[in-house]
Amino acid sequence: MNNNALLALSTAAACLPALQAKAQQITQDFQLGVRHYNYQESAVPVENVLNQQYERYDIEVNQFRLVAPLGDNTQLNVDFQHEKMSGASPWYTFQLPGEAPKQVMSGASIEDTRRDLSASLKIALDRDVLTLGAARSSEDDYESQSFSVGYAKESDDRLTTWAFSADVSNDDINPVDAEIYRTRPASEQSKHSNSYLASYARIMNKHWLLKIALGLSRKSGYLSDPYKQVFVEGALIGDARPDKRISRTLAVQNRYFFDDVNAALHVDYRFYDDDWDIRSNTLDLAWYQNWDFGIQIVPSVRLYEQSAAFFMKPSTLKSEPTEITLPTIDCQNTVQ
């Protein structure tokens, strides 16, 4: 193509209000969905595990969804999820001098049930969309509730969308078997978090979509994993992280469609930075190639780098392993 008339005119025509697909912001129909799935993890390779516990998680999930229009401008979404999990999970790593670190797994009879209920109300008025949401999740040892509010606005030409959202959540953690495992907190712990997101999305032209998002998150309270343990210089201690964390993210997403070859290039960059000194850069490149018969092939590459949190460092035994006594734990009798 040697002149830009087709592209220029098509871009201008795409701005005509009557030619734009009306944003289906509010559903016209009731939708009811039920889904069941089963997730199983393969056993951990024998050579990587220290305590002969190779099985991993088995998770059964039942999901239920209701989407209901409440008049022309309002829509209600309700999601319920019931999740049953059993199996073992990585517990801590242990390294003998001169050997590769080995994983110590938790017992095989961990069992937990999670119930997750969330509801959101979406109110759409021409180019403004307001979303209010609430969610509650409960497990044997974990309770969480959160509230969110979001607002999105489209420009008159519908090419630009600004979106802002905020959410707060309160979590209560009651680790099981704290009386057996001294590394687990004996009393209820709580965690509070709030996060904010602002984004700008723009259809730059017929072929190019750009989105930029800025996020801020603040967490406080018990931010450790009560079941994780760390083997540090001969002692097994509980996972203990700082009780505050502030993180910032910047994400830039580009979608570029090439008519000639019926393919799209995705170029996404994400920057993450927090006050635990973790800083990461992620660059994702993906090529979405469409073929006949609805087949799509997506080669992609991700470049990722991350710095370690200031309290993390590799720990190896300085002394002889004979001085070490591994904790003896009867995993079969520890979990309800």
């Binding site: 008339a5 220029a8 005119l9 871009t11 201008a12 025509a13 701005c15 005509l16 030409d157």
Partner: peptide, 13 residues
């Protein structure tokens, strides 16, 4: 927006 479209058409031609 039709006027804008006509502007582009005028320019491109």
């Amino acid at each position: 927006i039709l006027m804008q479209y006509a502007t582009i058409a005028h320019r491109e031609s």
